[in-house]
Design a protein around this nucleic acid. Structure first.
Length: 516
RNA sequence: GCGAAUAUAGUUCAAUGGCAGAAUUCCUGACUUCCAAUCAGGGGAUAUCGGUUCGAGCCCGAUUAUUCGCUCCA
């Protein structure tokens, strides 16, 4: 564990040092759980997105893409269940460090009053026997009446505070009633805070509930609300899928472990619409297909595993995670969920618009079932980087051991594909030649030209950002127009004619290989 | 969110309450024909705000961030 955490620290430091990831707003001391992608980070991330998009959309005739807006109609989140399921007033007891829902604490207090009322009634019933009139007793007995009034009073205060989202009043009620923590018995409470997973903002300048908008907590809903638009305009027939890559926002209680859990993050989601009853077949298909995707990019099988959900979310009838063995342990990387017809049905109900598909084979209308694959782009980035990061012992110029830090990224997703290096800087003929090769290769892929420092140091610099190939221009180049291509992982060099470099490189970095 | 710890140069680490220093990185130059070479020169820091003190990197308080534990997790 200690070794692994050490490894994780090194990866985080490497990300910063080599321009992959910076903390957001660093000059202002940073913003918690928000990170920026640097020059190499954005290249790698874009390549990961491209790999996903090509494998899902380009390679599946029955999957199409969309790019829905981050802002959506507020009713969307009512339909999806996000508004109701994740909107709780929370309070902590400072002594027991236990967290409670403030409204539940008050409700529990009210229940205790009810118990007292019932006790009184029971006692009276015993005393008066068959002649006991409960309704009359409730109304006329002063002690019971007081309890009932108190109960009603608290109830209305609670209801009004809840509907106004008034956290101060909620805290006030708890203080006034002297509610104590069931664990510590103390009344040492924090303020009541609203925990809402969703970030809200407002549309226009109009204050009030109408203008309130949420930043989407998942991209999936943009797909669901566009289900019919897409199905009709692309003439897709079930089964078919809609894919989307986009930002999502979640107000996590704790956001830690670098880019693993961020408040603003990017999802790559695909919702696959199937006939009711077919969902488990497709669920298995996508489990299998997605695992293959991970393995094809070079993630070793032993670092991946399925993790079945025992407690299912409100929308699902089956759910499994693909977990990756991060430096801090196996954690969720991708989710594959059978979402039933929950979302489409819910939107259909709330919008009053039919979201159904006429199945020509069955000759009937139905609300399709959905199988979702949802992968965190940033988590994939972290997984890829964790897997690629290595410190190796290699011989230096004198044959002694030296360590090199290298990112063994799959060439297809490496930020820079190729560095063009003149062996020495001082000879104009070499630098000129190298420069010309660079100017040509840059049309085909992301290249760098570097003439500073010794050749060994330049190789190491490229290793550190995961550049798979270095083209070196030396004295022989000037004689016969050949260069060496140095391979990152093996350190081996091959000598090839300049005019063949572009083709050789293109073959080696081609993403096509990953799909075969 | 609670508790504890931490915060000095891009990075790693020094500095008894009294001149903020080194290594490395970076920039410039010399030398150098294949895996972090060498030499010379240069740039660069006390997280933020306040307090105590003749004087604060060091003591005190707050804030921010990070790490660890708890808590939460679709």
């Amino acid at each position: 564990m200690a070794i692994q955490n050490d490894q994780f620290k090194k990866i985080v430091a490497h990300c910063k040092e080599y321009g992959f990831i910076f903390q957001s707003s660093e000059i202002y001391d940073g913003l918690s759980a928000v990170y920026d992608y640097g020059p190499y980070g954005v290249e790698l991330k874009n390549n990961i997105k491209q790999y996903w998009w090509q494998s899902m959309v380009q390679m599946h005739e029955n999957i199409v893409g969309i790019d829905a807006a981050i802002f959506m109609h507020p009713k969307t989140w009512k339909a999806s269940g996000h508004v109701d399921a994740f909107n709780d007033p929370l309070i902590d007891n400072k002594d027991s460090k236990k967290r409670y829902r403030a409204d539940v604490l008050i409700e529990e207090y009210m229940e205790k009053i009810e118990v007292k009322i019932n006790k009184e009634i029971k006692k009276a019933h015993k005393r008066f026997g068959d002649s006991f009139d409960e309704v009359k007793y409730r109304a006329e007995n002063p002690r019971v009446a007081k309890y009932i009034a108190n109960h009603a009073d608290i109830g209305s205060q609670l209801a009004s505070a809840m509907s106004n989202n008034d956290m101060v009043t909620l805290k006030g009620i708890i203080e006034e009633l002297q509610i104590a923590c069931p664990v510590s018995g103390s009344r040492n409470w924090t303020d009541v805070r609203q925990f809402n997973l969703m970030f809200s903002t407002q549309l226009g300048n109009v204050a009030g509930e109408e203008g309130k908008l949420y930043l989407r907590p998942e991209t999936a809903q943009g797909i669901f609300v566009n289900f019919l638009n897409v199905q009709k305009t692309t003439r897709q027939k079930i089964p078919f899928g809609i894919a989307q890559i986009g930002k999502a926002f979640r107000n996590e209680i704790v956001a830690r472990q670098f880019i693993f859990r961020m408040r603003e993050f990017e999802q790559m989601e695909m919702q696959f619409f199937v006939a009711p009853g077919e969902e488990m077949k497709w669920y298995e298909y996508w489990k299998d297909t997605r695992l293959k995707w991970h393995k094809a990019i070079g993630t070793p099988e032993e670092k991946l595993r399925f993790h079945k959900h025992e407690n299912l979310a409100h929308y699902a009838n089956a759910a499994v995670d693909i977990q990756f063995n991060f430096p801090f342990g196996f954690k969720e990387l991708e989710g594959i969920h059978s979402r039933t017809d929950f979302d489409l049905s819910s939107h259909q109900e709330l919008s009053g618009k039919k979201l159904q598909y006429f199945d020509p084979v069955l000759g009937e209308n139905y609300v399709p079932y959905v199988v979702e694959t949802s992968i965190g782009c940033d988590r994939m980035f972290l997984a890829t980087l964790s897997n690629a990061y290595e410190e190796e012992i290699v011989p230096d110029a004198k044959g002694n051991d030296s360590t090199r830090t290298v990112l063994k990224l799959n060439p297809a997703i490496a930020p820079v594909k190729c560095a063009v290096l003149p062996l020495v800087k001082k000879e104009d003929a070499l630098t000129k030649k190298a420069r010309a090769i660079f100017e040509d290769l840059r049309f085909s892929f992301n290249c760098q030209y570097d003439e500073k420092d010794g050749i060994g140091r330049r190789y190491r610099r490229q290793d550190a950002i995961g550049t798979p190939y270095c083209v070196t221009v030396d004295g022989t180049t000037l004689e016969d127009n050949t260069v060496t291509i140095r391979e990152r992982d093996s350190l081996e060099q091959i000598r090839v004619p300049i005019e063949k470099v572009e083709q050789i490189m293109s073959d080696r970095i081609n993403m096509k290989k990953l799909f075969l």
